[in-house]
Structure formats: structure tokens, C-alpha cells
Write a protein that binds this DNA or RNA. Structure first.
Lengths: 345, 345
DNA sequence: TTGTAAAATTGGAACGTTCCAAATAAGACT
DNA sequence: AGTCTTATTTGGAACGTTCCAATTTTACAA
């Protein structure tokens, strides 16, 4: 039952040609006669041949392994799962396969994973970096001429391509919308203060606050873990202020959901008594009750674009660092109370 | 800048030993003298050597590539994302890396992906099969002695290991609980009728219905896509019956959430006017409003166990097919109205 | 026929590692 | 000093593919 592996020379022997010819057929070269090609293909089918990409790769100076490494910081978060799916779609249709790993926000794990991927000869890497990732972590990759695309979060001091959503603009739009609904005290909830993404979003918040003549008050910024629990915690602190906010923009949708939970726990109905806006537009946002007003970033689209950029760089051979900012848009649903305001107006 | 790849012979030359010795060091053999080991390691660090697993694998008759293939049918669904994370955790700590791909329920895609993985020489496969997967699809793998563990769903007619949750018992427990709360007309919502999982769950439902002296009525079974939208649709059909149910057990949590949406849209408050029970216990279940009573299956744990089983088979060399059924438990929260009933009693 | 260009095929060598059998070095004991 | 173990090291020869230069076959015109 345990038969030896079928190789090109086995095929060659049976088909009555040389191994070189079989190799040519394998790679779809136009040099080979149609009749022989057909015969070789038939024999391959018969013997149940499977291509050994490792061996091929060994000879071909390692550059085109047809493997793309994808490393995300939290696969459990559906945002990143969608991102990975987006990458997979284009990577797969280009005949590559993806090596996906999860780091759970651990830089050590990330280092291990990336090292392991290098050993396997990935021809490119898409990285949604763990918190605390530094430019030095990517250094070996770029000096080995392996194209890298960093997604979602930026890595300070790394000269690689990146694709991020327009965080500043997103928060600006959210605050402007709330201001147009008449809110004057708007809180910012959630996120870790030491990340670039947080900074960009808070900047957008601050810019909008001053541009829209809304109350400017640093006590209205509450950082918290970017999770549902963090959101519940943050909103609790926000509504215990003497001068309470009437609306909140959140670091992401998970925080926003948590904020809704927290409001309800305090007898406040989100979308009616208090306006909440999220960020990300995860799948649940549109079906939640109340449906979440949020900033849509299309993670799957981001994944697709990241993959396209990476593939471009791989085929170009030259890795010209390129930065894409992925535009975002405000999706108005129920949680901001817009419908209500309109009804009252 | 573009320097050639550093190989064992480069290391050997610089360290003043033979390539064989370097190879021994690489594999942590006890045969090599401590002093030489240290020196070789130092040189490897200096030259920035990266191990070429492809080459190694080529020589080692292909069996231990340290790659595990993981194929899931829907990474977007957080249940499967959790499963993948569970697999990753144990696979990674065993020094393997995972090749993860998503099939989006397409058997064709699944076939391609698995073929591609074989070309890369995976040493084992964990598969959460797409709908319609047949035993024949796994045939080439098993005849090539590549261990396979099928997770979540069974593949009819495949003699490979599997790990599934105890669907029958889960639904039995859900119905029994509802019956104990006084419900006599209990609907079953969602799922595709042609899947084994659906059959098992419906069987559990039917068993419990007859065991608990609840109304037995095939009109109370509504199949629908196992999604939020499907749940909303199914509940709509259920409550339009003349003899309406007062409770529903759902194919999964997504369906249950959809059912809650649908109830609310009809002015019925889930957990108060109508009892809803889900299946899976996804992360959102505990924080949703109302918190979802559901059957907890711990997908991450399933992933871990699947990976452990696979690794065991890989190291054993012999793939004795083994079936694990992962036990489940009822988690009572708010959506079944248990708290309410108790308050009334 | 013969010459010639184009088309198709081919036998090594090479890629970077591990395996094997054999060689060498280092102690330990007569 | 010689012999026997034991510890350490070492050159090829693989593994399955692709590349290269060269060869054979075919097609076509003169």
C-alpha cells in the first residue's frame, strides 16, 4: 500500500520521454509538441503524480515558492478574519497559497512565526502587526528582499509598504455627524493610548471637535481595551461625569457594542437617550439592536488590496515601498439616533 | 545589497568544520562537541543564516515537513475562526506551522486548496469540510498515508479520524430545558436539511420532544440558511402558524440572533414573550441583549484537540482512524426566559 | 537529394539539505 | 607504546526538480 513517491523520471520512463520533457509539460511550456504533452499528462493522471514544489523551489533560487505568509494579531476578531479572507481570495486566484498564523498580540510569537515562515521560503508577507512591533522586527525580511505589506496598523520606522484605513477622516466624519444632530458633548471611548491607530483616531476626533464647535474637554477621552468589555467599562466612567456627554464615538465596533450594553445596564437606551457611533462596520453591526451607526472600512477589501499590492511587488521583483490609505465612509443606522432626530425635526 | 543565500557550506567554511557537522548542529544532535556547537551557532548568527526547510524536506523522504494544512469552510464565521486559532496554538507549540485556507463552502475550491497543500508536502490535514464533501475527496490523502482529521462536520464514507460535537445530546438538553420551563410547542429553526449535522440535531430534537411529552409536529421544523438572515426568515414562518410555538431551539447562534431580530420586528420580546435557544455559544452570546441561552461547544478546544489528535497520528506514522465526540453543555442565560419563569413561580 | 531553419527533445549539473559508512581524535587501560 | 572503546568529525551520494547547452527530429525550400 505504501508505494514510493511518483517522480518526473517515473513519468518520463512510462511515457517514453525524458525527464526534461516532463518538466517542460509541468510548466506549460509552449516548446512541447501537443501529442507528447497529452501523453505525459495522461501518464501523470494514471500514476497519481503530485508535483513536489519543494524540490522545484530548491532549484529555482528560492524566489518563487508560491507561498504568501499572512500574520494577524487576532484572528478571533472578525475584522481580522475578514481581512485574511480577503487576502486568501486574491492570493489563491493567483495560484499562491497562504500560510496564516495568529500572534494573539504577542511580539515574541510574531517573531517565531515570521522566522518559521522564512524557513519555508515565503515569497512575501502580509502583516497585521502585534502591538509593540518595531521596524527592527521587519529588518531581516527587507534586507533579504522579501516584499512585506503591513496592514491595518503602521509599524514605526519600517520602510515597507502599508495599507491603513483613514482613521482621522473616519472619526472626523463621525463627530461631524453627531454635531449636526445637535450633540455638544461627545465622548471618545476605548483603545490603547500607545498605538498609532489610537492617536490617529483621537486626532480626527479632536480636529472635528474644534471644527464643529463642540465642547472641547480632554476628560471626555476614555481609553480602555478595544473590546466589548472595555466599551462597557469606558461608558460607565463616561456617564458618571457630572457634566455628562450625550453621545460617544468609539474606537471600534466591539467597544461600541460594549457601550450599548453599559448604557442599557444603566437604564439608558442607546440610539434613543444616547448616541453611539462605532468604527469598522463588522458584520453584526447592521443586524444588532439598535443597528450600529459606524465607520465602514471593508476589511475584506483591504485584505484584497493588500494582497494585490504584495503580488505586484513580488512579480516586479523590486519592492518600492508604497502607502495606501483606504478610504472610509460613515454608515448611518439607528444607534446614533439620527432617525429619531429627523422624526422630531 | 542582494547577497546570495547563506548555506550550510558557507557556515562550514567560516567555522572551519564540515557541512555534515553543521547539519548535525542544526538538528541538535548530541554527537557534536559543545565547543564546536557553540562556534557553529555563533557563525550562523553572524552570517544571518536561515534554514532551508524545503531542501531538508527533499532529502528526508517528505514525511516531516512540519507543515499542517488547515482548511475551513467559512473563516468569516467566528466559530471556525476560533477553531483555527485552537489548532494554531497546539500546532505552533509543537514546532509546526499551519497552512490555513478558506473554502467558502465550495467543494471545488476545497479540492484545489488541498491539492496545493499536497504539493507543498503537508504532513497532515485538519479539515472542516465544505458542504457536499465526499469520502472520495479524501481518498488520495489517505492512500498517500497523510493523516487527516475531519472536524465539526462528518464526511460520509471517509475512513479518517473525526471530531464532532455531540449534536444530538445538545439539542436534547435544550428541548428538555424548555420543556421544564413549561413550553409545549417548541420549534426547530434553521440549517440545511442535507447535512449530517442538521440530521443529528433534528434527531436530538425529535428524541427530546417525544421523551418530554412535548407536542410532536413536523410542521415545527423550519430549515433555512444557518445565518442571521435565515433565522429571521424561519421565525417569521414559525409565528405565522395558526397554532404558534412558544419557544424555539435554533440550529446555531447566528440563527438564534436572527430569530430574536425577527421576533422584535413583530413586537414580540425574545426572552420574555418567547423563548429562544441557540447552539455554539459564540463570543457574542453572553453579551447580546438578551443574553443568549445556548449550547456551548468550545470551538477553540475542539481545534486544540483536533490538532493533538493529528500530531499524535503524524508521530505514530500509523493513522488509526479515531472518532472523538466533543461533549457539550447547556448554558442558561436570558433568552429562554428561565429567569422570568423562576420569578413567576 | 541536400541544406537550413525551426521545432522538439534531451542528458547532465545544480539547488541546500540529510543520510550513510567510514575516518579520525581522544581517552582508558594493559 | 600498543590496543581497544568511545566520542567526534567527515566526504560523497542521494532527494526531485529546473536550467543550460547541445542534440535530434521535422519542415520546407532550392
Amino acid at each position: 500500500m505504501t508505494k514510493d513517491r511518483v517522480t518526473v523520471v517515473d513519468i518520463a520512463k512510462v511515457a517514453g520521454v525524458s525527464k526534461s520533457t516532463v518538466s517542460l509539460v509541468l510548466r506549460g511550456s509552449p516548446l512541447v509538441n501537443e501529442a507528447t504533452r497529452a501523453k505525459v499528462n495522461a501518464v501523470m493522471r494514471d500514476l497519481g503524480y503530485v508535483y513536489n514544489r519543494g524540490a522545484a523551489n530548491l532549484r529555482q533560487s528560492g524566489s518563487n515558492s508560491k507561498i504568501i505568509g499572512v500574520v494577524v494579531n487576532d484572528l478571533t476578531n472578525s475584522f481580522f478574519a475578514e481581512l485574511a479572507v480577503g487576502v486568501d481570495i486574491v492570493v489563491q486566484s493567483a495560484g499562491f497559497v497562504q500560510f496564516l498564523s495568529n500572534t494573539s498580540e504577542s511580539v515574541d510569537r510574531q517573531r517565531e512565526v515570521i522566522a518559521s515562515m522564512r524557513e519555508h521560503g515565503i515569497s512575501g508577507l502580509i502583516l497585521s502587526p502585534a502591538r509593540g512591533t518595531e521596524g527592527a522586527d521587519l529588518k531581516p525580511l527587507v534586507s533579504a528582499d522579501i516584499p512585506v505589506v503591513v496592514a491595518v496598523r503602521n509599524v514605526p520606522g519600517a520602510k515597507v509598504s502599508s495599507i491603513c484605513s483613514d482613521n482621522r477622516e473616519g472619526l472626523f466624519a463621525a463627530v461631524r455627524h453627531l454635531a449636526s444632530l445637535g450633540h455638544r458633548r461627545i465622548a471618545f471611548l476605548g483603545g490603547f493610548g500607545d498605538t498609532a491607530v489610537f492617536q490617529e483616531r483621537v486626532d480626527g476626533y479632536r480636529d472635528a471637535v474644534s471644527a464643529c464647535l463642540v465642547d472641547q474637554d480632554d476628560d471626555l477621552v476614555f481609553d480602555a481595551p478595544p473590546s466589548r468589555a472595555g466599551g462597557a467599562d469606558a461608558i460607565g466612567r463616561a456617564i458618571s461625569l457630572v457634566n455628562k456627554p450625550t453621545a460617544a464615538v468609539c474606537f471600534n465596533d466591539a467597544v461600541a457594542f460594549g457601550a450599548c450594553d453599559g448604557l442599557r445596564a444603566n437604564g439608558i437606551e442607546p440610539g434613543k437617550d444616547f448616541a453611539v457611533v462605532g468604527f469598522d462596520d463588522v458584520i453584526e453591526a447592521k443586524t444588532a439592536v439598535p443597528a450600529l451607526t459606524t465607520i465602514s472600512v471593508d476589511p475584506q477589501g483591504m485584505g484584497r488590496r493588500a494582497a494585490q499590492l504584495l503580488l505586484k511587488q513580488i512579480s516586479a521583483g523590486k519592492a518600492e515601498a508604497e502607502s495606501i490609505v483606504s478610504s472610509v465612509r460613515l454608515v448611518v443606522r439607528e444607534s446614533c439616533g439620527a432617525a429619531l432626530e429627523r422624526a422630531e425635526a
